[in-house]
């Protein structure tokens, strides 16, 4: 039996009819046409399907599409509407990614981290990112970009003295 689901994706309103067994990941990719959340394990282990649900990172392979009725989703497509975010810019400059398959999930997880904890310590960045698997980079250039972005943001928002 289909269920009507109304949700916002990157600020845009969507009304969809979904089956209870449909995963949010599948619905986003095949019905909404948002491709950045990627299947990597489809059981919660890799983080490549990460989306922000009301601002918090969740694994869209572990969420049924019916569950998000009335909620707001952000994917990496919704971050850079006015160009790249500070974090994304640092990631490009530092060549943080290689194959890039993990990148959307990692960008969102790091975005959430910086929203919750704008000046994280290195070990806090590592802990926050430790549920997003990357097979290519060894993580160091990703962690460096998060720390650099945090430092830049702090420098630009610091009150003049």
């Amino acid at each position: 039996m289909g269920h009507a689901v109304a949700l916002k994706v990157n600020g845009e309103s969507w009304s969809l009819e979904v089956e209870p067994a449909e995963l949010l990941l599948e619905v986003l990719r095949s019905r909404v046409g948002i491709k950045s959340p990627k299947p990597g394990c489809e059981r919660g282990d890799c983080g490549s399907c990460t989306v922000l649900l009301d601002g918090r990172s969740v694994r869209s392979c572990l969420v049924l599409a019916v569950e998000v009725d009335g909620h707001e989703l952000t994917t990496v497509e919704g971050l850079g509407i006015d160009g790249l975010t500070e974090l994304q810019q640092r990631m490009v400059e530092l060549s943080s990614f290689q194959c890039g398959y993990c990148a959307p999930g990692i960008v969102l997880t790091a975005t959430e981290l910086l929203a919750v904890n704008p000046r994280p310590e290195r070990h806090e960045v590592q802990a926050a990112m430790s549920g997003n698997l990357c097979r290519c980079t060894g993580y160091a250039p990703i962690i460096d970009a998060v720390l650099t972005a945090a430092a830049t943001a702090a420098a630009t928002t610091a009150p003049e003295v």
């Binding site: 400059e93 060549s95 990614f97 890039g100 990148a103």
Partner: peptide, 21 residues
């Protein structure tokens, strides 16, 4: 040299096989 595919990947725009419609 920063990767020439950097922006495509960081924005989620880089297509992978399963992304094709």
């Amino acid at each position: 040299t920063p990767r020439i595919d950097g922006v495509e990947k960081i924005t989620g725009a880089a297509p992978f096989t399963d992304d094709l419609d």
